[in-house]
Design a protein around this nucleic acid. Structure first.
Length: 427
RNA sequence: GGAGAGGUGGCAGAGUGGUCGAAUGCGGCGGACUUGAAAUCCGUUGAGUCCUCACGGGCUCCGGGGGUUCGAAUCCCUCCCUCUCCGCCA
């Protein structure tokens, strides 16, 4: 949610900001609704005031033993006009709420202009793509050769397209990656390890911005008794832990890390990445979330991104970092860095992490606040999130980058302690 | 699934349908006393929102939603959550 004061004060400026991410906002319509709201609200509240006063007078008269009938006659019609005003006000407020919940975040001034992926700006590279003197295979081939360790047919048999079954060394490697990431983030980067529910209620999803607009991207539990959704990312439960809270300044910045499965319907991406485990309905991810003071959130974004990069560096995987342009950013983000890992099977850099500062956008939606010592007042804090990393895609990157001519795969040194000292995956 | 109890301010805990946003205690903050501290005493201390340049004022909130009433923390309906016992169960 955007700052409503700013919206009221200068809707045109907001519209210009939103245009930078390709969002069309009708400032005139908003202004009209807003002035309607103002008029209705002051009318409603003055009627409420009158009711309160009169009720108080009736109470006092009754206590004094006076005849209250004349007073009752006076308020006879008050209730009706109050109710009418309240109903009207509610309708306008609900329209305004719909608008508020539907507006995406404003891009930070440092966000490059642009419409789509092609306008993203590369800001750095690390490592060099491995030079193979043979035709590198992709992870699908490699996995199949490794004792059917990646079995897409089995996944499809159980659950349909975009599911996979992992076995043996590959399953273990997948587990090793998640363990490794958790250990680094908790012991070296200062995040608090957190385990969360994988099913969440509607309010949490509104809090982080998935609802009301993107319901079709989520898997819902089809049940009146349990109207829950599978989490598309641990960002949802993790960030919402702060909902309705007022944190002390001393608690910030607060870093949380969580390993969880993620569930995405991938509606609207039917033709894309159909081969392999790049785009699955279910995948594991280690997620970082930070809650910060507003004046610290952009430094925190750099730190958080560096935490994600540290994993790739330790694994020796080449990557680049890009700043997303306005048109390519997610709904809640004010600024996003994508980290893209080199995949020899595709001879391309592919997204393996996305690190975003949402500023106060999510905090306002979920009433996550901190007590500002300078003002003494509760104020929205800033929230950030980033994958560090997507475990499935990281597995793909290890398999493809560490493959050998004979089909074996070397295990990065950093992971060997998690693999019982093993240094190869071999058929 | 069955039976019962309960959800009130940071915490604990009162609350008769009528100045109850709410007693009291603890905690927090400020002050007095003290060389300093403790103890003691005095004061203060919820959130949201609207109007106003401001001063200030209004409105809403006692688990959520709905209802009765001139007036609801208090009465009614409904949902959610917590606790105890029984059953079932990883």
């Amino acid at each position: 949610m955007l700052d409503q004061k700013a919206l009221r004060q200068d809707p045109k400026a907001i519209a210009e900001g939103l245009a930078r991410r390709g969002h069309d906002f009708d400032a005139e319509h908003y202004k009209a609704l807003e002035s309607q709201r103002r008029e209705l609200q002051s009318r409603t509240e003055s009627l409420q005031h009158e009711r309160n006063e009169r009720s108080r007078a009736i109470g006092q008269a009754k206590k004094a033993g006076e005849d209250i009938q004349p007073l009752l006659d006076e308020v006879a019609t008050l209730g009706e006009s109050l109710k009418a005003a309240e109903t009207e006000l509610e309708a306008v407020q609900s329209s305004l709420r719909d608008i508020h919940l539907g507006l995406p975040n404003l891009p930070h001034e440092s966000v490059p202009p642009g419409e789509d992926e092609s306008d993203n700006v590369e800001i750095r590279r690390w490592g060099a793509p491995p030079a193979f003197d043979f035709r590198p295979r992709d992870h699908v081939e490699l996995g199949e050769a490794l004792g059917n360790g990646l079995d897409f047919a089995a996944g499809a048999k159980l659950s349909g397209a975009r599911f996979v079954v992992m076995r043996d060394g590959i399953a273990r490697l997948h587990r090793a990656l998640a363990q490794f990431m958790l250990d680094i983030h908790t012991t070296e980067h200062g995040y608090r390890e957190t385990a969360v529910p994988y099913l969440v209620g509607e309010s949490a999803l509104i809090g982080t911005g998935q609802l009301p607009k993107f319901a079709e991207d989520l898997f819902a539990i089809d049940s009146d008794e349990h109207p829950l959704h599978l989490i598309p990312t641990a960002e949802v439960p993790l960030t919402n832990l702060a909902a309705d809270d007022i944190l002390d300044a001393g608690e910030l910045p607060l870093g949380l890390v969580c390993h969880s499965p993620c569930f995405r319907s991938e509606a609207g991406s039917y033709g894309r990445d159909t081969r392999g485990m790049i785009r699955q309905h279910q995948f594991d991810k280690v997620e970082l979330v930070q809650l910060t003071r507003p004046d610290d959130s952009y430094d925190a974004l750099e730190r958080l991104t560096a935490h994600a990069e540290a994993i790739l560096q330790r694994l020796g995987l080449p990557y680049r970092v890009v700043t997303l342009c306005g048109g390519d950013m997610g709904f809640a983000a004010a600024k996003t860095y994508d980290i893209e890992v080199w995949l020899p099977g595709q001879a391309a850099y592919r997204e393996i992490s996305s690190c975003s500062n949402t500023e106060a956008f999510q905090a306002r939606r979920m009433q996550a606040r901190w007590r500002n010592p300078d003002t003494g007042r509760p104020e929205p804090l800033h929230t950030l999130n980033g994958s560090a990393l997507a475990v499935g895609r990281c597995l793909v990157a290890v398999l493809e980058n560490y493959q050998q001519p004979d089909g074996r795969v070397a295990i990065p040194e950093a992971l060997q302690p998690y693999m019982g000292g093993q240094s190869w995956l071999a058929p």
